[in-house]
Design a protein around this nucleic acid. Sequence first.
DNA 1: GGGAGAATTGCATAATTATGCAGATTGACG
DNA 2: CGTCAATCTGCATAATTATGCAATTCTCCC
Lengths: 188, 188
Amino acid sequence: MNPAARKQLVAELLNNAVIESQEELVKALKKRGVEVTQTTASRDLLEIGAMRGKDSGGRFRYILGGSVTRPSAKSQNLLLSVVASGNLVVARTPPGGAQLLAGFIDSAITSGDLRSGIGSIAGDDTVIVVAKTATGGNTLAKEITALVDGEPLKSAKAVKGLKVMKAANSANSANSANSAKAAKKRSR
Amino acid sequence: MNPAARKQLVAELLNNAVIESQEELVKALKKRGVEVTQTTASRDLLEIGAMRGKDSGGRFRYILGGSVTRPSAKSQNLLLSVVASGNLVVARTPPGGAQLLAGFIDSAITSGDLRSGIGSIAGDDTVIVVAKTATGGNTLAKEITALVDGEPLKSAKAVKGLKVMKAANSANSANSANSAKAAKKRSR
DNA sequence: GGGAGAATTGCATAATTATGCAGATTGACG
DNA sequence: CGTCAATCTGCATAATTATGCAATTCTCCC
């Protein structure tokens, strides 16, 4: 059997069965009439981008990972998804991109480009934006999407009396410490 | 150093640097004042669901896995309490464990295991999870509890007011202070 | 305070995976 | 057909990772 076809078979096996080790892969291949050693199994797995880890059941397993690379440039794919619920919007970013997006959103709020938002708080890859009204999440989500997509939402009218939300006045001490850390990172 | 905090640090390292081997992880941790052996590094990586493979450049690399692999939150006592308020859920973890739990929750949301949640945000020992519907906090709290641990945790009960997060007791406060100090050293 | 039991960690080592090297196989070309 | 170059494969072994076990530390709880 030629190597390309064998790799294809390995990929199918990984998707349709639990392969816990290379020795197990060797056996699975043998059962299908393909005899190779652990050496070749190792090479095949590396070449098709398989990865090994433990699944939810605590067992080892090889899987075919997607892209191994993590985005480092946060300019293009900064906003991965936007979902609204009630007065909140949850925006997703690549790991580490939340602070940047939050700053962008805060800036838009201050400038009046995001009229229905009153502030945001960022973690590592998630930003929560608070809408002005109790049911304003949907509208806000659309505004954020449009804004990041480059739609000009320009408005010279500043929102009055609104301020970037800080959790420092929260009743919870631990949470305020967390938020303080996040806020510090957002210096601009 | 607290194991949960160390695991969070490991997760950050994996996201922000190329870690090619466990020995390299040991060195990276040492540079940040955390001294452990390869044994502990191996266990940490398995418990946070890291996987090893080759990236596009042909180098080995550990990454945090996606849907197939997930952290064993239960065995780590990662989830201390869950309370709901309106469309929000507040989950508490040991100091430094919030990022880890949030990753676990986000993974569950992405994979569809947490259907009533849309996203989470983490501080140091607190995670806020947003429910899909305006009153979905209660349901979400139950789902989170069931997901992390087959049986309900102690006092995983929803409350109505916003004063849901009780301040940590004295012992925990000390730990939180230490953890906050450690967190300050971390770059992100 | 102090004892019981759980959790954490490192050592030594088992288990597993990766790789240098040499031989085998294939395909192109004169 | 013979030769060369490239690819593929397995063996032996290096490199790396996982784990049993005992020692230590932490957590309750009385």
